[in-house]
Nucleic acid binder design. Structure first.
Lengths: 231, 231
DNA sequence: GTCTGTTAGTGATAAATATCAATTAATAGG
DNA sequence: CCTATTAATTGATATTTATCACTAACAGAC
């Protein structure tokens, strides 16, 4: 993590959070003047669960994992944070503690903005507030869907779902680098790493995917969707 | 479900959603003039997953279960809706479809308020908007905690947690009527009904609770918490 | 290059959980 | 009060998933 601003301004930022479009020029300038840029190396923790929610975090470049540190050191990876996204857990408006941790997977460039300023803008700008509610709601909706997936499907269905998530939401491609280790893949699908390995192999053996340790290629999308839906 | 307003007005309603305190008199009057009261009998569906989110729902009296209709007709009960609470899923601000269903457990008195009006107030009243974000955030936080509980604990831990939920959040008493059937208890803890029965029996045999088919009494709270935390 | 620690992969086994098949309460109508 | 259903319980068994104990592969430090 190093200081110094590489990004010129929020106004010209190509990775700007899309909800900032609801701010006036003055308001956006206020954000810009109060942001702190940081660059994280792979593996570095960007936000720590339990720490005070003093800042909202915006992803400018790179990828990170958001995860809950659960019972007995067992993690649960919720999602992959991508450029242009706001990272703000529910704790910001409840107990002022981060509900989850975030750690960089690749090199990550991110901006911190004080919650005092952020919340103030939410209070005075109705359209901005509404767009924040939309953002929070979308995350909540995903988490509901995710919950049912994880609770009601067997391992192969859960893993298939995550493989599709990477293809559809993260890389927008049927072929991609699996940026998570097998251990992490297990933490995202709520299974032991050994099981993740085995099911990946099963999917490869049945010709649904090609999988070299770090590369994934979806060969039979229809079947993968079927496995994901059937459970 | 029958029409006719039994509640005099929002202003004097003892079950008023606490966030309405941020509304002006005029705004609250607007809500009051546009609300529709309904009474549901036990078992009746109040909101159906997938249907359009035309209204926000406020619980005035009684208890309901909110549940997601998942895979193969398997339900997942998220929580018990109580008097004074707003029922509004994330769909309202995303795809205008209810994300979950709600059905009455006891006789329920509830008010429907059009989302058009509700959203308008969110837009113009910053403090109200903020309080809504707080409400949504609190629900989201619970759901995160719930997710870890359900994903990382074994059956006895999950059931113990739900028994404590009823005691702490619903009845505020160590002794209460279990308003859910064994089947539903299973749907809330993500286990088969037979397992719910067995674990309830185990807890009784080990003196942690007393359980007559419909009555639950927590005898050893410390131990129950321990079981819930250990997983 | 060699050493060393970490991740991936494999098979055997144990533990947890679901399903199935019966019975036995419990309850709502008539 | 009796009967038809539905819910609760129980035991046996099948599935699913986790754990354990290794071996192989790999990457970084020196």
């Amino acid at each position: 993590m190093s200081g110094g601003n590489l990004i010129d301004s929020c106004e010209n930022c190509t990775r700007q959070w899309k909800n900032f479009q609801h701010l006036t020029k003055t308001e956006l300038k206020l954000i810009n003047e109060n942001r702190y840029e940081a660059t994280f190396k792979p593996g570095e923790i960007m936000l720590k669960q339990g720490s005070p929610t003093s800042n909202a975090l915006f992803m400018a470049n790179g990828m990170a994992k958001t995860y809950i540190e659960g019972i007995n050191g067992k993690n649960f990876i919720m999602s992959i944070a991508l450029p242009g996204r706001l990272i703000m857990g529910p704790g910001a408006y409840v107990n002022s503690r981060h509900t989850f941790s975030v750690s960089a997977i690749t090199t990550v460039q991110a901006c911190f903005i004080s919650f005092d300023i952020f919340k103030q803008l939410v209070r005075v700008n109705g359209a901005f507030a509404e767009s924040l509610i939309e953002d929070i709601s979308a995350k909540s909706l995903r988490s509901h869907i995710r919950m049912v997936n994880l609770l009601q499907k067997r391992m192969s269905g859960r893993l298939a779902e995550v493989l599709l998530y990477f293809s559809d939401e993260v890389f927008h491609n049927d072929e991609y680098e699996m940026i998570l280790s097998r251990q992490e893949l297990g933490e995202m699908t709520s299974m032991a790493k050994e099981c993740a390995v085995r099911i990946l192999k099963e999917l490869e053996d049945s010709g649904v995917i090609y999988s070299d340790s770090s590369k994934i290629k979806i060969l039979d999308r229809k079947k993968l969707i079927q496995i994901s839906e059937k459970g």
